[in-house]
Simulated scan of single mutants.
Amino acid sequence: MKIIVISDTHMPKRAKQLPKVLLEEVMKADLLIHAGDWTTISLYEELKELAPIQGVYGNVDSDEIRDIFEDHILLDIQGHKIGVTHGHLGKAKSTPERAMETFSKNPAELIIFGHSHIPYLKKHKDVILFNPGSPTDKRFQRQYSFGILEINSNLSVRHHFFDLKH
């Protein structure tokens, strides 16, 4: 199973359209996971035509997005527990720490989060923490990015980095 993981698209403020490289991967995916800060409902409407979607809302999302999505979800995909949160709820901790805390009572094998726009992939004890970065708003990062999660008997997650937005 191939899953594309994105976050912090901030559309249409940061981009008028999604990068071609991302769209090509989404069309080959079995599932798309968005970790929040979509900004408007039109992006959701566009993406749901390309692939099945799971996601959460972020701190800048519209009420329409908040009506569709929760602040965090725990998915069971082929026996793997995958937590998804934007990572903005809570105080005085780093974004990865807030993401882990969100699933402290419902453990996950993989926790996907966003908010910082900083690509992140680290294992903490038995949990993989993953931030795909942003495909449209790299902020202070060298490149734009999104994630590719492959599930066979094991989980395999990696970043896909690229330079051009379109």
Results as ranks from 00 to 15, higher is better:
Leu50Gly: 04
Gly79Glu: 09
Val60Phe: 10
Ile41Asn: 13
Pro52Ala: 09
Gly36Cys: 06
Ile82Pro: 12
Ile65Glu: 08
Ser42Gly: 09
Tyr44Ala: 03
Ala35Ser: 07
Asp67Asn: 05
Leu75Pro: 07
His34Gln: 02
Ala51Tyr: 02
Asp37Arg: 06
Gln78Met: 10
Thr85Pro: 13
Leu74Ser: 02
Glu64Gly: 10
Leu47Gln: 01
His80Asp: 11
Pro52Gly: 09
Glu70His: 13
Gln54Arg: 15
Thr85Ser: 15
His34Tyr: 08
Gly79Trp: 12
Gln78Lys: 15
Gly79Pro: 11
Gly79Ile: 09
Leu32Lys: 00
Glu45Met: 11
His72Asp: 15
Lys81Phe: 04
Trp38Glu: 01
Ile53Ser: 03
Asp37Met: 05
Pro52Trp: 06
Glu64Leu: 13
Ser62Ile: 03
His86Glu: 11
Phe69Asp: 03
Gly83Glu: 05
Ile41Gln: 11
Thr85Ile: 08
His86Tyr: 04
Asp67Val: 01
Ile53Pro: 03
Ile77Gln: 11
Ile77Met: 08
Asn59Met: 03
Asp63Ser: 14
Val56Cys: 09
Ala51Trp: 00
Gln54Glu: 15
Asp71Lys: 14
Gly36Tyr: 04
Ser62Ala: 13
Trp38Pro: 02
His80Arg: 08
Ile65Trp: 02
Leu75Phe: 06
Asp37Gly: 10
Leu47Trp: 00
Val56Phe: 02
Lys81Val: 00
Glu46His: 06
Leu50Gln: 10
Gly83Asp: 09
Ile41His: 02
Thr85Asn: 11
Ile41Leu: 15
Glu49Tyr: 04
Ile41Lys: 14
Ile77Pro: 05
Pro52Glu: 12
Thr39Gln: 02
Arg66Asn: 05
His86Phe: 08
Asp63Arg: 14
Ile73Tyr: 09
Leu43Gln: 00
Asp61Pro: 07
Ile33Asn: 14
Gly36Ser: 14
Gln78Asp: 14
Ile77Asn: 05
Asp37Lys: 04
Ile68Asn: 11
Ile73Asp: 15
Asp61Trp: 10
Ile68Gly: 03
His72Gln: 14
Asp61Leu: 01
Leu74Trp: 03
Ile82Ala: 09
Leu75Gly: 04
Arg66Gly: 07
Asp71Val: 08
Asp67Gln: 12
Asn59Cys: 05
Thr40Arg: 03
Val60Thr: 15
Thr85Phe: 07
Ser42Phe: 15
Pro52Ser: 08
Asp71Gln: 12
Tyr57Glu: 10
His34Cys: 08
Asp71Cys: 10
Val60Asp: 08
Asp61Tyr: 04
Gln78Pro: 08
Gln54Ala: 14
Asp63Gly: 14
Glu70Ser: 15
Ile33Trp: 08
Ala51Asp: 05
Val60His: 10
Trp38Ala: 10
Ile65Thr: 07
Ser62Cys: 06
His86Trp: 07
His72Trp: 12
Val56Thr: 13
Glu70Leu: 12
Gly36Lys: 10
Ile33Lys: 05
Ile65Leu: 12
Ile65Tyr: 05
Leu31Asn: 02
Phe69Glu: 01
Ile41Met: 13
Asp71Phe: 13
Gln78Thr: 09
Val84Trp: 01
Gln78Arg: 13
Leu50Ile: 07
His80Ile: 08
Leu50Trp: 02
Phe69Lys: 02
Pro52Arg: 14
Ile33Gln: 04
Thr85Gly: 07
Leu31Gln: 00
